[in-house]
Amino acid sequence: MGIVIAVISGKGGVGKTTAAANLGLGIAQNGKTCALVDFDIGQRNLDMILGLENRVVYDMVQVMDGEATIKQALIKSKVSENLSFLAASQTKDKSVLNSEKVKTLIASLKANFDFVILDSPAGIESGYEHTIEFADAAIVIVNPEVSSIRDADRAIGILDSKSNKVKNGEEVAKYLIINRIVADMVQSGEMLRSEDILEILNIKLLGKVPEDKGVIDASNQGKPVILDKKSIAGQAYTRIAGRLCGEKVDMKDIEISDSGLFKKIAGMFK
């Protein structure tokens, strides 16, 4: 029986889909089986990030409606056979999802994979609620920026009231990934520190991902950045995936850049 994790953010454009793709691949590289499901109905994107857009035949709505089996619809990743992907439907009608259908789909994925990762749509509408409804845990993605953090708090509030686990009196585990950190700006006081963000949102930290131009380059090619061993964002996702798989990986302090440290030391002698 696997664990179901919803990747959520509230605000769009903070790197949610990129995070889902990289965590899925990172988990697969750790030897665990993982199903990645794009829940962003009408705005299918995870297939592009994974470089699988040409291989989509059936989508998740067709599976829910019995037009295709899960086996037919799941696409194996080219880089890791542990990773399978289920595409979002491109229909404009978001009402295609309902709780019963989502529950059945997730239950069958849960029975066959170690991890089931759901890439949630942005916003806090019904599509989002369906993504979190049957999740065992949620990973919240934020940027160190006011609108992202505020929207994340709203999304967490809904998670805390609408998830099935909470309704059954259990707790839904939630963890934060802070994405697009610029060390120099944190050091100069122009960007919120991780500790401040954690304090404001009252949530546990799963990992920090630095700003990295390689992320765009990776998405251009459809090869998640975690495959680029030199990329600092890719390395961050490798550490986070390790943590998810139960490894003890120390939190690397990416908020102190080498140049930032140098300036600090140089500053002492001014």
Binding site: E145, V146, I149, R150, D153, R154, G157, V186, S188, G189, E190, M191, L192, R193, D196, I200, L201
Partner: peptide, 17 residues
Amino acid sequence: QSASVAKDRLTIAIMSD
């Protein structure tokens, strides 16, 4: 510093949300 301004503003906005 703008980061501490952000923290203050966020704390208040989120509390009222």
